[in-house]
Each structure stands twice: as structure tokens, then as C-alpha cells.
Amino acid sequence: MASPSEGLPLGRTVPPVPAGVEIPPEPPDVGARALSVASRLLAGATTFFFLAFIFAYFYLRSINVEHLWRHGHIDPNQALGGAMIGCVVLSAILAIVSGRQMKAGSRSWPAPAAGAVVLGLAAVALQCIEYTRQHFGPTDGAYASVFCAWTALYLIAVLGTMYWLETQVATELRARREPAPTSGDIGRADELIAPALDATVFYWAFLAAIGVVTYVVLYLL
């Protein structure tokens, strides 16, 4: 570096800066890039989380200990499962549309985003209904264990993502109601919604793809 430490007065302490001061704001583009990178990293972490279940599925299926992998009566409800994954995929498509509208400068992007939230929550509801209708529980062998745990944890991930998407819509709606927001220290609200929505849409599309894999593995194979 161009400012080496030559000439330092050894043995002296620089007086401390008073505590309790505010940290100055970051430029909005820094927050935007951080969100974008974080959503990709979160997708990576999510992939490895569900890879553990995919591994468990194929491992237990291949060794089929004492033929207990899957009893004959264990068959998830195809209609409800199909409807659930349909909602997930439709919701992700709506979220992508919403993101594109935002990038194009359209003010109508909250409508498809809100639709995406509703469909995502519908998917959660459908999965819960399926739990009450299916003829097996988590104690009915290895497949049933994988099915119940995997789908339940996927639902939690969907719920979390719907929360994230909802915050973008709510922030935008509030910003419209109360113009000139003073968000303060990590950038103005309107400057942060676009990258936050972009990050959320990316993650939701990724999670939907994991949902499709979940459906194929648990319902079709």
C-alpha cells in the first residue's frame, strides 16, 4: 500500500472516538450487489440441504433394508401433489413476470408479485391438506420417512420465501402511500426494492425448480 507505517510514534495511543455514533450509509449499489450474491449463495446452501434428502432417498431405496423401503399401500395423493407443484411453478412464473415488469419500469409489478405470494401459500395449504388425507404416516417405513420430512422442510422453505416476497410488495405499497421515505442507513427504499425483488425472484425460481425435482422423485419415481 502507498501509506506504510514508517515514522510511527511507538508507545502512543490515538484517543478513542466517542462511542454511540451512527455508521455512515453504504452506497445503494453495494447493498444491491450484496443481495444478489447472497441469493445465489442461499440457493447453493438450499441445494446442499435438500441434496441430503435426495441422497437419503436413493441410498435407502437402493439398500431396501428387509424390504421395508416402501410398503404396497404407501402411495401419495397424485392429484394433491400435482396441484401443489402446479401452484409452486405458477407462483414462480408470476414472480418472474413481476421482476421483469419492475425492471421495465412498470408500476404494476406488485400485482403479479402478490399473486405469486397467494399461489405460494396455496401450495403450502395443499400440502397440508395432503398430509391429512394420505394413508400413511412418517412411521411407515423409509420412503414414508423421507416423504414426510422432505416435503415438510420444503414447505418451510416456501413459507420463508413467501415472507421475503411479501416484504417487497408491502414495502412498495407503503412507499406509495407514504412518499419520500427516509429509510436512513442502508439506502433509500425505492433503490433497494429492485435488487431485493430481483434476489427474491431468483431464489424463488430456484426453489421452485427444487420443488419440481421433489415432485418427480417423491411422486413419480
Binding site: 408491502a170 436512513g184 427504499a189
Partner: peptide
């Protein structure tokens, strides 16, 4: 954030 308030850190850091 659920209620739509914009992203921010704590208003002020604690002293001492």
C-alpha cells in the same frame, strides 16, 4: 419488514 417498513439497521448503536 412484513409491514412494509424500509430496510434499515438499528436507528442508533448502543453506547458504552
Amino acid at each position: 419488514r412484513l409491514l412494509g417498513r424500509p430496510a434499515s439497521l438499528r436507528e442508533k448503536e448502543e453506547e458504552g
